[in-house]
Deep mutational scan, measured.
Amino acid sequence: VLKALERTRQLDIPDEKTMPVLMKLLEEAGGNWSYIKLDNYTALVDAIYSVED
């Protein structure tokens, strides 16, 4: 979780936006981090930006 938060902080995305999206992605992935961690957490960042749209 810390590495995911560090990555999104680099992009000026607050933890308050990151955590709900991260928890949803983890739930959808059955707790499997490998998809979320791919390409420096690209799936997480993309999911956060899609929620903002």
Rank of each mutant, 00 (worst) to 15 (best):
residue 1 V to H: 06
residue 1 V to L: 13
residue 1 V to F: 13
residue 1 V to A: 07
residue 1 V to T: 07
residue 1 V to W: 14
residue 2 L to E: 15
residue 2 L to Y: 11
residue 2 L to T: 12
residue 2 L to M: 12
residue 2 L to Q: 15
residue 3 K to P: 03
residue 3 K to Q: 14
residue 4 A to D: 04
residue 4 A to V: 05
residue 4 A to G: 02
residue 4 A to N: 03
residue 4 A to W: 06
residue 4 A to P: 01
residue 4 A to K: 02
residue 4 A to F: 05
residue 4 A to E: 06
residue 5 L to T: 04
residue 5 L to H: 02
residue 5 L to M: 02
residue 5 L to F: 03
residue 5 L to A: 02
residue 6 E to G: 04
residue 6 E to I: 10
residue 6 E to C: 10
residue 6 E to Y: 08
residue 6 E to S: 07
residue 6 E to P: 00
residue 6 E to L: 10
residue 7 R to T: 09
residue 7 R to K: 07
residue 7 R to Q: 08
residue 7 R to W: 12
residue 7 R to H: 09
residue 7 R to E: 06
residue 7 R to F: 13
residue 7 R to V: 13
residue 8 T to D: 04
residue 8 T to R: 02
residue 8 T to Y: 05
residue 8 T to W: 07
residue 8 T to E: 04
residue 8 T to N: 03
residue 8 T to S: 04
residue 8 T to I: 07
residue 9 R to V: 04
residue 9 R to N: 05
residue 9 R to G: 05
residue 9 R to T: 06
residue 9 R to K: 05
residue 9 R to P: 04
residue 9 R to D: 05
residue 9 R to C: 08
residue 10 Q to Y: 12
residue 10 Q to D: 10
residue 10 Q to W: 08
residue 10 Q to F: 09
residue 10 Q to N: 09
residue 10 Q to P: 03
residue 11 L to F: 08
residue 11 L to Q: 05
residue 11 L to K: 03
residue 11 L to P: 01
residue 11 L to N: 06
residue 11 L to G: 04
residue 12 D to I: 05
residue 12 D to M: 13
residue 12 D to S: 14
residue 12 D to H: 14
residue 12 D to L: 11
residue 12 D to Y: 11
residue 12 D to T: 06
residue 12 D to N: 15
residue 13 I to S: 03
residue 13 I to Y: 03
residue 13 I to F: 05
residue 14 P to Q: 05
residue 14 P to A: 07
residue 14 P to G: 05
residue 14 P to M: 05
residue 14 P to C: 07
residue 15 D to P: 03
residue 15 D to C: 05
residue 15 D to W: 02
residue 15 D to L: 04
residue 15 D to S: 03
residue 15 D to T: 03
residue 16 E to H: 13
residue 16 E to W: 15
residue 16 E to Y: 13
residue 16 E to D: 11
residue 16 E to N: 11
residue 16 E to T: 09
residue 16 E to P: 05
residue 16 E to F: 09
residue 16 E to M: 07
residue 17 K to E: 07
residue 17 K to S: 07
residue 17 K to C: 11
residue 17 K to N: 07
residue 17 K to Y: 08
residue 17 K to D: 07
residue 17 K to Q: 10
residue 18 T to A: 15
residue 18 T to H: 03
residue 18 T to Y: 04
residue 18 T to N: 01
residue 18 T to F: 03
residue 18 T to D: 03
residue 19 M to N: 02
residue 19 M to H: 05
residue 19 M to P: 02
residue 19 M to I: 15
residue 19 M to W: 11
residue 19 M to A: 03
residue 19 M to Q: 02
residue 19 M to V: 11
residue 19 M to E: 01
residue 19 M to R: 05
residue 20 P to K: 12
residue 20 P to D: 08
residue 20 P to G: 09
residue 20 P to F: 14
residue 20 P to E: 13
residue 20 P to N: 08
residue 20 P to W: 12
residue 20 P to I: 10
residue 21 V to A: 08
residue 21 V to E: 02
residue 21 V to I: 14
residue 21 V to F: 06
residue 21 V to W: 03
residue 21 V to Y: 05
residue 22 L to S: 00
residue 22 L to R: 00
residue 22 L to W: 02
residue 22 L to Y: 00
residue 22 L to C: 01
residue 22 L to G: 00
residue 22 L to K: 00
residue 22 L to Q: 01
residue 22 L to P: 00
residue 23 M to E: 09
residue 23 M to F: 09
residue 23 M to R: 10
residue 23 M to Y: 09
residue 24 K to Q: 11
residue 24 K to H: 08
residue 24 K to S: 06
residue 24 K to T: 06
residue 24 K to F: 07
residue 24 K to A: 10
residue 24 K to M: 10
residue 25 L to T: 01
residue 25 L to H: 00
residue 25 L to P: 00
residue 25 L to M: 14
residue 25 L to W: 04
residue 25 L to R: 00
residue 26 L to H: 00
residue 26 L to T: 01
residue 26 L to E: 01
residue 26 L to A: 00
residue 26 L to K: 01
residue 26 L to W: 02
residue 26 L to Q: 02
residue 27 E to V: 08
residue 27 E to Y: 11
residue 28 E to Y: 09
residue 28 E to G: 08
residue 28 E to P: 00
residue 28 E to Q: 13
residue 28 E to W: 09
residue 28 E to C: 11
residue 28 E to I: 12
residue 28 E to L: 13
residue 29 A to K: 08
residue 29 A to G: 07
residue 29 A to T: 15
residue 29 A to Q: 14
residue 29 A to M: 14
residue 30 G to A: 10
residue 30 G to Y: 08
residue 30 G to W: 06
residue 30 G to F: 09
residue 30 G to N: 14
residue 30 G to E: 12
residue 30 G to R: 11
residue 30 G to C: 12
residue 31 G to I: 04
residue 31 G to Q: 07
residue 31 G to H: 09
residue 31 G to V: 04
residue 31 G to D: 07
residue 32 N to D: 15
residue 32 N to A: 08
residue 32 N to Y: 06
residue 32 N to T: 07
residue 32 N to G: 07
residue 32 N to I: 08
residue 32 N to P: 02
residue 33 W to N: 00
residue 33 W to E: 02
residue 33 W to H: 03
residue 33 W to F: 06
residue 34 S to P: 04
residue 34 S to T: 15
residue 34 S to Q: 14
residue 34 S to Y: 15
residue 34 S to M: 14
residue 34 S to N: 14
residue 34 S to D: 15
residue 34 S to F: 15
residue 34 S to K: 11
residue 35 Y to A: 13
residue 35 Y to D: 12
residue 35 Y to T: 14
residue 35 Y to Q: 13
residue 35 Y to C: 08
residue 35 Y to W: 14
residue 36 I to D: 01
residue 36 I to R: 00
residue 36 I to T: 01
residue 36 I to Y: 03
residue 37 K to S: 15
residue 37 K to T: 14
residue 37 K to D: 08
residue 37 K to A: 15
residue 38 L to H: 15
residue 38 L to V: 10
residue 38 L to R: 14
residue 38 L to I: 09
residue 38 L to M: 14
residue 38 L to E: 13
residue 38 L to A: 15
residue 39 D to R: 08
residue 39 D to S: 07
residue 39 D to V: 05
residue 39 D to N: 15
residue 39 D to P: 01
residue 39 D to K: 09
residue 40 N to Q: 06
residue 40 N to A: 02
residue 40 N to M: 06
residue 40 N to L: 06
residue 41 Y to Q: 01
residue 41 Y to E: 01
residue 42 T to H: 13
residue 42 T to K: 15
residue 42 T to N: 10
residue 42 T to E: 13
residue 42 T to D: 07
residue 42 T to W: 12
residue 43 A to V: 11
residue 43 A to K: 12
residue 43 A to Y: 09
residue 43 A to W: 07
residue 43 A to S: 07
residue 43 A to Q: 10
residue 43 A to G: 07
residue 44 L to P: 00
residue 44 L to S: 02
residue 44 L to C: 01
residue 44 L to F: 03
residue 44 L to V: 06
residue 44 L to N: 01
residue 45 V to I: 15
residue 45 V to C: 03
residue 45 V to F: 05
residue 45 V to H: 02
residue 45 V to E: 00
residue 45 V to Y: 02
residue 45 V to M: 07
residue 45 V to W: 04
residue 45 V to D: 00
residue 45 V to L: 12
residue 46 D to Q: 15
residue 46 D to G: 07
residue 46 D to H: 12
residue 46 D to T: 14
residue 46 D to A: 15
residue 46 D to V: 12
residue 46 D to P: 01
residue 46 D to Y: 11
residue 47 A to K: 09
residue 47 A to L: 06
residue 47 A to M: 09
residue 47 A to T: 06
residue 47 A to N: 05
residue 47 A to G: 05
residue 48 I to P: 00
residue 48 I to C: 02
residue 48 I to M: 06
residue 48 I to G: 02
residue 48 I to Q: 00
residue 48 I to Y: 04
residue 48 I to N: 02
residue 49 Y to L: 14
residue 49 Y to C: 11
residue 49 Y to F: 13
residue 49 Y to H: 11
residue 50 S to R: 14
residue 50 S to D: 10
residue 50 S to F: 10
residue 50 S to M: 11
residue 50 S to N: 13
residue 50 S to C: 08
residue 50 S to P: 05
residue 50 S to K: 15
residue 50 S to V: 10
residue 50 S to L: 13
residue 50 S to I: 10
residue 51 V to W: 12
residue 51 V to F: 11
residue 51 V to P: 08
residue 51 V to I: 13
residue 52 E to L: 11
residue 52 E to Q: 13
residue 52 E to D: 13
residue 52 E to H: 12
residue 52 E to V: 12
residue 52 E to I: 14
residue 52 E to M: 14
residue 52 E to F: 12
residue 52 E to C: 09
residue 53 D to E: 14
residue 53 D to M: 15
residue 53 D to R: 10
residue 53 D to Q: 14
residue 53 D to H: 14
